[in-house]
């Protein structure tokens, strides 16, 4: 038991380092695809370290929710990672832990958006309304997709969901595809970075944060991105072998390359287009869930 705990902590240490580095990698790849040299790979890490060392100044007198939102978001993400094996195969687990993870993810989006609304900044409000509508759609989709895997493996225990044991069923293959799209969407990548949309609403949900608070907000968003990727990877890579750390690392890098390349050649959608896209996807996923329950 103690080893599980130490292993999970080691995992946390790893992801805290890996999340910014992966973003740095994505920036580098995007730069190359845009024929630029780009910043060095640890640049995002440097940025975050620099932000964390600065005092967080809050303008005016925003509500408590707003003040603590980045920290709650961050804590939620770190706790969620305790249940998801990443580099090492250790993770906490109990019956229904998947519901806890689901709750943590959903709560953090809502906290961020609600906190942002309380500032009264019109850009933040617009960003938050966008964030809430998008994240509702996204969380619904996450729920349905996870339900597919629960139905396939007939378990609410995360460790028994991972990985999906071959031979793959039709519903699990479709579920994996949907989940991969979801990882992309929830990673606030173009064209789905609508809540932040720099040229339109100047950062949206995070516009009022600065210094340490901003650092934690950005850090948490990066962690969330990695969390989704990790869940996806855990569904496919073999676990409990000597090579599983290598599988994992190769996996996240492959997804980073793939996703940043897609992002590089897309423009930003308007919110209603993104929502209608997700609505259609949710309906299709619902059908897949029915298939999974029926045993296909």
């Amino acid at each position: 038991m103690i080893w599980v705990f130490i292993g999970a902590l080691a995992n946390i240490g790893f992801i805290l380092l890996a999340a910014p580095l992966l973003d740095g990698l994505e920036r580098k790849i995007k730069a190359w695809l845009q024929n630029r040299r780009g910043p060095p790979i640890p640049q995002t890490l440097y940025d975050i370290v620099k932000l964390l060392r600065k005092p967080g100044g809050l303008t005016g007198n925003p509500g408590l929710l707003y003040r603590i939102a980045p920290y709650m978001f961050f804590t939620n993400m770190v706790i969620a990672f305790l249940f998801i094996p990443t580099l090492l195969d250790y993770s906490l687990s109990f019956i229904g832990d998947i519901i806890v993870v689901y709750y943590l993810i959903t709560a953090s989006s809502i906290i961020l958006a609600m906190g942002s609304i309380s500032t009264g900044n019109p850009f933040a409000i617009t960003g938050s309304t966008r964030e809430i509508s998008l994240s509702m759609a996204g969380k619904l989709l996450t729920g349905i997709t996870l339900a597919i895997f629960v139905a396939v493996n007939k378990s609410f225990l995360i460790t028994s969901l991972f990985p999906i044991i071959p031979p793959y069923r039709l519903s699990s293959i479709l579920g994996l595809i949907v989940f991969a799209i979801l990882v992309y969407i929830e990673g606030f990548r173009l064209p789905f970075d609508i809540p932040e949309a720099e040229p339109e609403i100047a950062g949206g949900v995070i516009i009022e944060y600065t210094g340490r608070d901003l650092g934690f907000a950005i850090y948490s968003l990066l962690l969330k991105r990695l969390l989704y990727t990790s869940i996806l990877l855990n569904l496919v890579i073999p676990r409990y072998t000597v090579f599983s750390p290598i599988y994992y690392i190769v996996g996240v890098i492959v997804f980073s390359i793939l996703f940043s390349t897609i992002e590089c050649f897309s423009g930003r959608h308007r919110i209603e287009y993104a929502l209608s896209f997700m609505k259609k996807l949710s309906l299709a996923t619902g059908v897949v869930l029915v298939l999974a329950v029926l045993g296909y």
């Binding site: 190359w32 695809l33 845009q34 024929n35 630029r36 040299r37 390349t261 590089c264 050649f265």
Partner: peptide, 14 residues
């Protein structure tokens, strides 16, 4: 566009 990007390479200067 991807193909063209790769064929052009890096153009910015240090």
């Amino acid at each position: 566009l991807l193909r063209r990007s790769i064929s052009v390479g890096i153009v910015t200067e240090k």
